[in-house]
Design a protein around this nucleic acid. Structure first.
Lengths: 238, 238
DNA sequence: GATACCAATTTGGGATACCAAGCTGGTATT
DNA sequence: AATACCAGCTTGGTATCCCAAATTGGTATC
């Protein structure tokens, strides 16, 4: 499969070298998150092998990693891209609420609030000309970066992993332009409260934002689950 | 290494069969949690291979899993049993507080409280004759089972994983008999509040318990870190 | 005695060969 | 026509082999 005796180091878009293991993991994750491989589709190790030109060792490492991220799951003897699970989405929102609120309270207690400017700039980089995919990704990063400011690695990773699990479902919802704008406004409100050091207000707004987003997301996916299934996406009811 | 053409299924203490992958993972995790391999010790894949009579494929799968659990970490090109990290212990406590309080609030809202009896029975199975290791393990399981009752899988797994990360440090503290009894009392108080459906009280008690435990643990390990290092355990300062 | 350098060994990353279990398609029997 | 059954193929699990890089230990040089 790799006739050259010289090890081939895969390269990402920035040109930095990485091991095959990391390369396969990253590429496969991207395909799953971008819905190039639909929820519910079967995966075989051999297919991934030939698709990415790697042997089974890095492929299996990538599969094990992605399994712990919840993006794929064992299906008897094989592998399946995790279905969109409405019950899971509801539970994740509760989990997010717990960890994000804890994180934002820590962040409000910080003395140095200049770092908040970076997040605000990120939000403001979106305007009417910005493609929706960008709005989507910035909306995710807002939550992740806000959690990072807490300084607590466990809260940060919890938020990041939760957003990873949510991102496919949110991607399906990108059609709703009004929801994107609404989230943008709420993000700004939350940030204002954080900047003011008002932890209770920030917590209240963030909590309402997360639960509100969940309700809209679950309703939207519930109503559209026929259409999603027609596109070949496995959707598990709540 | 395995001369028989018949696949050898490893068996746990209950006699249930499992793959080599699961077997190696379980046995290695147990050795690490029981401090049979000390924090900071180097691990080589070849050593694990010969130690458990498995080949490298299941060994590498186990290592990847244990890495995501935080029990081992990459050390340049090799593997190391994660050191006891005081800063990490402090952060985990904050994380635990967030998720456990959220979980116990959900549990308080449950209509069926009979399941609480099972947890109470677990606590009461410890008496003066019970070995300290058992107290230690019951104390961990209390938090895990309480989180399970919430019905939220993400909160549950978060608590379980946090307790796994904490368990080696808590094990070092088992010497302190007073702390074990104190925890037992506090666990009972929390359970009483849950049984009464008093979410605010349960949350308050649980929060105080977690933070109090953290402070005692960190103080204890900080004072004893010389002794721990003398025993060959890597301890990273806060 | 300290240091720079080189060879041998070790080690993790990757590739491949093999196996058993399970699935698939077809066939034979009723 | 329906069903039981079997051969062959697919696939994940495991073992083993190879390689490049890094570590190590010793040696020669200053």
């Amino acid at each position: 499969m790799n006739p050259s005796p010289v090890a081939v180091n895969a390269a990402d878009t920035n040109g930095t070298t990485m091991s095959q293991m990391q390369s396969v993991e990253r590429q496969l994750r991207e395909m799953i998150l971008d819905l190039e491989i639909g929820p519910g589709e079967r995966l075989t190790e051999r297919w991934i092998e030939s698709r990415f030109g790697a042997s089974r060792t890095p492929v299996r490492a990538a599969l094990l990693r992605l399994e712990t991220e919840g993006l794929i799951c064992r299906d008897g003897r094989g592998w399946t891209v995790s279905p969109i699970n409405l019950a899971e989405l509801e539970q994740i929102a509760v989990y997010r609420e717990a960890v994000e609120v804890a994180a934002v309270r820590l962040t409000c207690a910080l003395s140095d609030r200049s770092v908040i400017d970076d997040i605000e700039a990120m939000l403001d980089s979106c305007d009417d000309d910005t493609p929706r995919e960008e709005w989507h990704s910035v909306g995710m990063d807002f939550h992740i970066e806000l959690a990072r400011l807490s300084g607590n690695d466990f809260l940060f990773r919890a938020v990041r992993d939760a957003m990873t699990r949510l991102s496919r479902a949110r991607w399906l919802e990108v059609r709703d332009e009004a929801a994107l704008g609404r989230a943008w406004t709420e993000h700004h409100s939350i940030l204002a409260a954080v900047r003011a050091g008002n932890a209770d207000e920030a917590a209240r707004l963030l909590s309402a934002h997360i639960i509100g987003s969940r309700d809209r997301l679950v309703t939207s996916l519930h109503n559209d689950r026929r259409g999603l299934r027609a596109r070949g996406f496995a959707v598990v009811a709540a």
